[in-house]
Design a binder for these strands. Structure first.
Length: 759
DNA sequence: CTTAGTAGGATTGAG
DNA sequence: TCCTACTAAG
């Protein structure tokens, strides 16, 4: 975490083989070994679930160092999460004990942040920039919208921020942005003003962290050669998750040696909505014609039955690199499909299944419950608590996202960089010190007029008559407070934090509250303080600036280390993990798959949902339990639960339906809620629902567009039965033909042509 | 300026 | 259903 990207290590010498053990490649299978031994030039490794992906990366790194004499500091390994980076360093360390420390391992973002600080001047940023997270970014967009007097109702800050992020993912400056309609045009205008405001605030957002280095590297050949020349080998994990900017960064950094090893699995690409593009791995050989392709298809994790079931789901996707997992493991027990009444019944089923695991003497830590959306966790929590089963929830509200933590961090950021307007505005009246809306508005107006930051405006408020009377006095005393605290800002971070908590009155205000909620907040602040003490112990050169960077780039918090508890999480959070027993809940149409039921859904969505189901199923080592509820309450309203196609499609010989299927025979565990008699046949309710879907389609008929893409053209005005009127942005070919439409009320969506009516 | 009340929106979420 | 974010009254 505290390594040094882009630093000059050329004076150091590494003695291969002298201190390190020889690397034993015996334990690798032939495919793995080929990928490890592949010499120079680009290679792509398609690594299926449970096929030993990390093993290949770590062995390849170790092999480079030990057998090929590559100095560790000339190897750069890039991951997406801090956790993955930590694990990689650790596992390389087991193979090359004294090399791992000098190895460059990091996330895209941490690596880029280092590059930006080190080469600030050449990259056109200030060295002490502040990093804005998504929340800060949105606050900034909001402010810009106000400054430009743009209606926030019509142009939601969230949507505008998404447009800006998309542009940055594509490494587009505002002028390169698509401005084909009013919305895009507005987004473009806001983007320009946003960039100016960010510059004034000395802030970069997460998109900048990647895009800026890309722009500099692509524009400046000498610089590119210098930097890319440093890294003899570049390895990228989870390559299917790269967005366009990240791809270009990798390409630039690999441009000198071309020793580019990318590893991933297109079947596990579940972050399209975040800008990830599977084409980068699928078309790798097109981008790098000399690239070798390796496929790891032997699975070491699951039973044969689980793999067959998982494959039956993923094989239906048209757009994938052909491959099929196989295993030497046992046949295993058939995955179970359980029908439950509603989400409470489902939660009770989970409880009974888990209790049976306990009875069998299995550890709770070896089991997990997955769901598609967080909202599903509530019912599970209630049942688990009632049954006294210890559990932990992964994901949800993150520590550094909590309001009180962000407040204190905003104080620290303001002390470090007073130009940081978002932070100033956040803490200006926290705790309440009588600086209200009108005062803030006056300050913002004065700041906008003079082109200065808020802090700057505050300092001049008196002499420039921006404020007067009580408001001026309050703002001045805030300024005094900040200046007092600034005197401590070069000292230890933990002490500065303590001073902030004390002198601002933030802590005493919380303590006075004396509610359960405020107690929890105080505890969180104690934890924050504790994390600073730990930081001061661990960091090479602790400083306020360094701490703030770590905190914004290191959002995951230490795992809950309670000894034996059940894990609850979304399927997205489960990627990369494995458990003996996996329960996947909520397998209903419109829940999981979440999209793909309605005819107007983008057809690509169902492929992503399929991959998501594939990820869920392949987490299981021994036993897979899939459940659906006949009635599900979502956001307070009940709706019938139609069994997901992801369970309907499973090969009948490989699964056991509990209760619902008349043909089902054999073992029915006592905990199956459906050991009771069924009153209603499963198929009948199912059919009825499909009819409902059908009737909707019927209503859509009579459109003139049928399936003929030629009937659609850019700029055409159309009506959609659900989304209303909109304008065609572009036509997507293929069958069925689709069009990208911007709806007046529903934003941009991709719609199958036959559901659009020309107006 | 603060507080209470209500309307509206609510996959998935790394850094 | 539940939480957040804004509006209207104290």
């Amino acid at each position: 975490m505290y390594h040094d990207f882009g630093g000059d290590h050329s004076s150091r010498c590494y003695l291969p083989g002298v201190l390190s053990p020889r690397l034993n490649l015996e334990g690798l299978n032939p495919r793995q070994r080929e990928a490890v031994l592949h010499e120079d030039g680009p290679l792509v490794v398609f690594a299926g679930a449970g096929s030993g992906k990390t093993r290949v990366i770590t062995y390849r790194i170790a092999h480079c160092v030990i057998a090929r004499n590559v100095p560790p500091w000339r190897i750069l390994a890039v991951t997406f999460t801090n956790k993955a980076a930590g694990e990689m360093r650790e596992r390389v360390g087991q193979l090359v004990p004294d090399g791992a420390r000098e190895l460059h391992v990091g996330t895209f973002h941490s690596m880029c942040a280092r590059l930006l600080r080190r080469h600030a001047e050449r990259m056109g940023v200030r060295r002490d920039f502040t990093i804005y997270d998504d929340q800060d970014q949105q606050a900034m967009v909001k402010r810009v919208l106000r400054d430009l007097s743009i209606d926030e109702k019509r142009f939601a800050p969230k949507t505008i921020a998404a447009c800006i992020n998309r542009a940055k993912q594509e490494v587009q400056r505002p002028d390169a942005m698509d401005a084909s309609d009013v919305f895009q045009e507005t987004a473009q205008r806001v983007y320009v003003a946003y960039e100016e405001a960010m510059q004034r605030a000395g802030a970069l957002d997460f998109g900048d962290l990647i895009a800026r280095p890309v722009m500099t590297l692509e524009a400046d050949e000498a610089f590119r050669n210098e930097l890319a020349g440093k890294y003899k080998h570049l390895l990228v994990d989870e390559f299917q998750d790269t967005n366009h900017a990240q791809f270009r960064l990798v390409r630039a950094l690999g441009s000198v040696h071309q020793n580019l090893c990318v590893v991933g699995d297109d079947d596990q690409a579940i972050y399209r909505w975040r800008g990830a593009d599977r084409r980068h791995i699928l078309d790798f050989q097109r981008s790098f014609p000399s690239a070798a392709i390796y496929k790891l298809e032997q699975n070491y994790r699951s039973t044969k039955r689980i793999l067959r079931v998982a494959h039956s789901i993923i094989a239906k996707n048209a757009d994938r690199e052909p491959k099929q997992l196989w295993t030497d493991n046992d046949e295993g027990t058939p995955p179970l499909i359980v029908r439950t009444e509603d989400e409470r019944d489902e939660a009770n089923m989970v409880v009974r299944a888990v209790q049976e695991l306990i009875t069998r003497g299995e550890a709770l830590a070896d089991a997990a419950v997955f769901y598609r959306i967080h909202a599903q966790s509530r019912a599970l929590e209630v049942a688990l608590r009632a049954a006294n089963i210890p559990y932990r929830i992964v994901g949800g509200v993150r520590f550094y996202d909590r309001a009180e933590v962000k407040d204190v961090l905003a104080y620290l950021r303001l002390l470090h960089n007073p130009d940081d307007d978002v932070s100033v505005l956040r803490v200006l009246n926290k705790p309440a010190r009588g600086i209200g809306k009108t005062t803030v508005e006056r300050l913002m107006n004065a700041a906008a007029r003079s082109g200065r930051g808020i802090w700057n405006t505050i300092e001049r408020a008196g002499q420039e008559h921006a404020l007067k009377g009580a408001a001026l006095k309050k703002v001045c005393s805030f300024a005094e407070l900040v200046k007092e605290l600034q005197k401590l800002s070069s000292g230890p971070v933990s002490e500065l934090c303590a001073a902030v908590l004390e002198r601002t009155g933030y802590l005493s205000q919380l303590q006075q509250d004396n509610s359960a909620e405020s107690d929890a907040r105080v505890q969180n602040l104690q934890e924050l303080h504790g994390s600073m003490l730990a930081y001061e112990q661990e960091a090479d050169s602790p400083s306020l600036a360094n701490f703030l960077e770590d905190v914004t780039l290191q959002t995951d918090v230490a795992e809950d280390d309670a000894p034996d508890q059940l894990t609850l999480m979304t399927v997205h959070a489960a990627k990369g993990l494995e458990f003996d027993t996996v329960l996947v809940t909520g397998l209903e149409e419109r829940m999981f798959p979440f999209k793909g039921f309605d005819p107007w859904d983008d057809p690509d969505e169902i492929e992503e949902e399929r991959r998501l189901a594939y990820v869920a199923f392949t987490r299981a080592r021994q036993q897979l339990i899939l459940s659906y509820a006949s009635l599900r309450r979502v956001f307070g309203q009940a709706r019938p639960g139609i069994p997901s196609r992801f369970i309907e499609e499973l090969p009948a010989d490989d699964v056991t339906w509990l209760g619902a299927r008349p043909s089902t025979r054999g073992y029915t565990p006592a905990w199956s809620s459906s050991s009771r008699q069924e009153t209603e046949s499963r198929t009948s309710s199912h059919e009825r629902e499909r009819d409902n879907g059908q009737s909707y389609i019927d209503r859509c008929e009579g459109s003139d567009l049928s399936d003929d893409p030629a009937a659609l053209f850019e700029g055409m005005h159309v009506r959609h039965p659900k989304f209303g009127v909109g304008q065609v942005q572009g036509v997507v070919g293929g069958a069925p033909a689709r069009a990208k439409v911007r709806f007046e009320r529903a934003g941009v969506r991709t719609i199958v042509a036959r559901f659009l009516q020309p107006i």
